[in-house]
């Protein structure tokens, strides 16, 4: 459903990503973004992937779990306090489960494909287990530095710095 053409894409002044070939992100697939710190994974997510998902927002649901989840957690707690005051969200995991419940309720009202983007979250296995249990069609895109806690992904997308200003992005194993 989502396609990004090959070419050089500017993320920030002085930093761009060189996509060696077209990338496609399809529901029913998982994508592991791999690369060292500063190789451009988060920039790819925030500057390229999320704006693209926003263009298709009428046709899909999207959840983005930020690498630095702390502030996002406050926003989720505020949402819960206003809409479900009987719930007491305490931990980051409570916030994520609340978010996923909210998503599943939305899907019951209107089914759409789900795009989940998880950037370096300690709770990636929790999210994965929830998705598996609920069984709705989804595209999971994640980055994770430690040993991959999930089953082998359908696709692995590598980020390799060519210089301080450009990283190469390509799907491995093709």
């Amino acid at each position: 459903m989502l396609h990004i053409s090959s070419g050089e894409l500017t993320c920030w002044p002085g930093f761009s990503l060189k996509l060696e070939s077209e990338l496609s992100f399809l529901p029913g697939n998982s994508y592991h973004l791999v690369g060292n710190n500063g190789s451009g994974k988060s920039s790819f997510i925030t500057q390229i992937l999320l704006p693209l998902l926003q263009k298709h927002e009428a046709n899909l649901y999207r959840i983005y779990v930020q690498q630095l989840f702390h502030i996002q957690g406050f926003a989720i707690k505020a949402h819960a306090a206003i809409n479900k005051p009987e719930l007491k969200l305490r931990s980051e995991q409570d916030c994520l489960i609340y978010l996923l419940h909210n998503l599943s309720e939305a899907i019951v009202r209107q089914a759409r494909p789900v795009y989940l983007i998880v950037d370096e979250s300690l709770y990636l296995p929790v999210i994965y287990d929830y998705l598996k249990q609920f069984g709705f069609p989804h595209c999971l895109i994640y980055s994770h530095h430690g040993a991959n806690p999930l089953p082998t992904p359908d696709h692995t997308i590598a980020f390799k710095p060519l210089s301080a200003n450009v990283s190469s992005v390509y799907e491995t194993g093709l």
Binding site: W12, F15, N37, G38, S39, G40, K41, S42, S43, Q67, L68, D119, E120, H145
Partner: peptide, 10 residues
């Protein structure tokens, strides 16, 4: 804000 999450931690 232009630093990656890992770079911010470093």
């Amino acid at each position: 804000t232009e630093l990656s999450g890992g770079q911010q931690v470093i």
